[in-house]
Design a protein around this nucleic acid. Structure first.
Lengths: 204, 204, 204, 204
DNA sequence: TGTTAAGCGAGACGGTACGTCGTGTCTTAAC
DNA sequence: GTTAAGACACGACGTACCGTCTCGCTTAACA
């Protein structure tokens, strides 16, 4: 009798889920350094050799676990207004970085971004997620809330980046209205960009 | 009894400079993992135990090297206009993240930011630097370019964060006018917010 | 699940022989202090960590090497007479302490006898060997050469001890007939004891 | 104003006594390995450098401390009878090896005997002491208790050696009458050596 | 229903770096 | 001129984890 035939195609060991769970738990508990393949093997009940059979090294394993994880999902909000959407997005990022267990994972993943192997992953991971948010802007344009030539990517980077910077670099817990302030500041710019395009005649 | 004739102050080994240099070089060349105390010892010509006498571990050593380094200095620009100052600041951050050797160092240091020991350092390091930039805004307020209640920290975080996000998370090389676009977008918001007494006729 | 095909018994690394050889060579060449685990690893071609996997520390390793070694074997002589047996035994001990490579090994092992870990080993090692010699006396009793109540252990300790003292403590090379003289002196006592046990009424 | 002019002649630092005390205490407490120059410096309140100025290395220091110590003195008994003298001697050796603090020191010194530097010392130390006991035999010969050609050195080695072997090699605590039995056995031989020279016609 | 190949458990191993401890040398002042 | 103070090179310690290997057992797909 065959069980679980689908999940058998060279895409990972039979216990992949248990392994990923162990990876993320250890990552959250002990940080990147505390995440050891031997520890993952012990906690997941899978032999170390088996892990190495499927992933080249610790970073590859971490990459797979992160990609597989729902922890860092970024939903695409649809509140009906650009402001609502951006607020939801910014707040979600803020929540990711400030509440457990995602905060630990993100912090550790940030550490991983400095590593060659995971750099590509970070790109794929974060950029993909942010790119998926670009629909927000398309909808806003459709709604007439925005001119079509708005640089949506820049806006996302400003907002997400402000959160990253405040939480991870400054290591501060931002005020409750941080997201709202950031969003409103950016929106103020967008709504009046064409009105006062005072970016002229200033030499770079 | 401490004596302190010339280069004797209990603040580090005699070869501290050589050690820091080796640390940053190895960090730039091989990343955080490739930065080993033994490697530093070998390259700097100082014995491993001497290093351990002064710094508790690898992270403390890295912290000291980063703090000591001029590589990551953030000058406080003074161009005469808020826009010019912000542009200079943003471009400087961008340059830090995209040109060698600082890019490698920052990238590798980013990997280290996930570690407890260096988290505090990151705070001290980045926050201090950003905070020092707040004078820009005081000057702008004095010049009448800005209302006094502007959230300067938020602005800095937006701009610096956009650069971090674009370069490190997205792993993209931003377009040449990225800094200008970001700064102008933010300025549009600021100028707009208080109606429009703004940054005109001020040469950069 | 243990399998144990050929040379697999959980009793030591695959290269145990090479390791023991290296241990004894280094011990003989450079003494106890010159015996380093790293040196053993280098000479035996086995990695240091492998050695530590099987023996807790340097002393445990030395202990194992000594126990494994045939260098310090004490054969049980069987010459047909008690005198011949004791002579053979005493001369063997003398030879152990005065000819290479055993002399170096014993000398170095002596240095180790002061250590807790090896103290137990010394007990096991020397006591076992000496005890094995007690048959000599049983045979002599059976032959009628000795009364049954002879304190064999004392005799062995006297003879072996005389050699130890002369060679190691006095650091003298004993005369050629040293063994014979010692044995004969002791035998004179034994043979005499049962004829006229004159050890009475003598005040301490 | 000069104090203590006598004890100033290149024979050691001013705090020599404190140093020797520390050496012997540490030796007794932690064994040879636990005896560190740094520990001696710390305990004696003398700087490490000072110690090294006077003694070449750890072993030389230990040697000096042992020679200076009264701990290992071997008194020359004079009880009026050979048996009494030998008994006193043997018991003294036994006591040295079995009661603190001398036992620890001797054990550790034994370990030191395996070291080249201290080998000479051991010779000087033990042999000298044993040799001083030879007067016992001269007195016994004078008293007519012994023939003049008795090999006194052999007798001392037998007795002292039996104690060493029993206590240090066998690691056993000898019975209360051990010394008496050994002495009596040897005396039995001496008193009848010429009477029953049964050392004939046995092949070596 | 076997056969066969892949997955997997088990664990020894070489290897790199860790952070620690002790040795013995040195330099620099202070007494 | 001896001593105190202490930084230093050096060598070894014993540990942790890495990633590789060999060897059989197991298991499922296929013949």
């Amino acid at each position: 009798m065959m069980v679980d035939t689908a999940r058998r195609s060279g895409d990972g060991p039979r216990q992949a889920e248990a392994i990923f769970t162990a990876v993320l738990e250890l990552l959250a508990e002990h940080g990147y350094d505390g995440l050891t393949v031997e520890g993952v093997a012990a906690r997941s009940g899978v032999h170390k050799t088996t892990i190495y059979r499927w992933w080249a090294d610790k970073d590859a394993l971490l990459g797979a676990a992160l990609l597989n994880s729902a922890l860092l999902e970024l939903p695409v909000p649809d509140t009906g207004s650009l402001r609502g959407d951006l607020l939801a997005l910014t707040r979600h990022v803020l929540r990711l970085l400030t509440t457990e267990p995602s905060a630990s994972v993100v912090t550790a993943a940030l550490a991983a971004a400095g590593r060659p192997v995971l750099a590509g992953l970070a790109h794929k991971f974060f950029a993909d997620r942010f790119d998926r948010e670009l629909v927000l802007f398309e909808r806003a344009v459709a709604r007439g809330e925005l001119p079509a030539d708005t640089d949506a990517k820049l806006v996302v980077d400003l907002l997400a980046g402000a959160v990253w910077t405040r939480v991870l670099l400054r290591q501060e817990r931002p005020p409750a209205d941080f997201a709202a302030q950031a969003v409103d500041l950016v929106l103020a710019a967008l709504s009046n960009r064409k009105v006062h395009p005072n970016t002229r005649n200033v030499p770079a």
